[in-house]
Design a protein around this nucleic acid. Structure first.
Lengths: 151, 151
DNA sequence: CTATCTGCAAACCGTTTGCAGCGTT
DNA sequence: AACGCTGCAAACGGTTTGCAGATAG
């Protein structure tokens, strides 16, 4: 599954006329599998394990390419909006741990009626919506109970 | 209503032990009334009309104070997460124009069931949710139809 | 009168750009 | 062989900090 998904990303990259290089392969492999939102430096550190010559600039440039292809997207949190994650597919929404950034997508919201109502009341033409749940993942719950929600 | 709300903000500021100064009054007055998300420079430019000696640094510091008091909050958009707006009250959610930043709060979502389900399925303890609709406000719709969604 | 706030200038730091050399195709 | 990609170093720009003087209470 993961191997196939990596392949798919690399093929898309190729189709778009980009070259498949060592640094890009390393970044794609890690982003395909990431279950936490990662900032550019996180990506840099992880990618360097596989590809020691990696430069931070290449991380920025590769994330931009992947983002243009819709494979990766920026994750927004109250304090940090510079993290990246595999993009949502279709109607998925994000559930993210406010402590460690662990993330999972879910689906099943039904906002159709709400959106229609707000559209009528406001006169806006609605293009999209963002729904995101934030909480504490199972491994962060004990930590946070001990420390009363902060360090 | 607006005058009263301005008073309320200033009183809260005072209660917290802060001083009411010219620059702060100017910023509070403008943020209470703002119907568009504003970045620090926008705030600076608008506040300078009322208070010409205003410095940008004071804008940053005042927005932080207001944000700590929960009176103002950061607005997140795909491209720009550094805009501020009067904070949501209670269960309000944001509707924002992706073209001009015009913003309005609405209420009426019922996410309780969804949140409960996701909570069970994921094991996360859910602390909060973000729901935001993005679209084109009435005055931006004509512009964007002409230009096919962008320049 | 004192503590806080202000504006200026400088420091900071994450991100972007310019460029010469390298690697993919 | 040609063109895109890479890493380095330098530039950039928004935000934060240090500080001396101004000002609210």
């Amino acid at each position: 599954m993961t191997v196939t998904e990596t392949e798919r990303w690399l093929e898309l990259l190729e189709q778009k006329g980009s070259r498949i290089t060592g640094p890009r392969k390393a970044i794609v492999e890690l982003m395909v599998d990431a279950d936490h939102a990662l900032n550019p430096v996180d990506v840099f550190d992880r990618a360097r394990v596989k590809y020691p010559k990696m430069g931070l600039v290449t991380v920025y440039r590769t994330l931009e390419v992947l983002s243009d292809l819709g494979l990766v997207e920026r994750v927004h949190q109250a304090d940090d909006c510079h993290m990246y994650l595999r993009a949502a597919q279709g109607h998925e929404h994000l559930l993210i741990c406010s402590c460690c950034g662990k993330a999972a997508y879910f689906s099943g919201d039904d906002l159709g009626m709400l959106i229609q109502r707000i559209s009528m009341e406001s006169g806006f033409s609605i293009q999209g919506h963002w729904l995101q749940l934030q909480g504490l993942c199972q491994s962060c719950q004990p930590k946070k109970i001990q420390t009363q929600q902060g360090e």
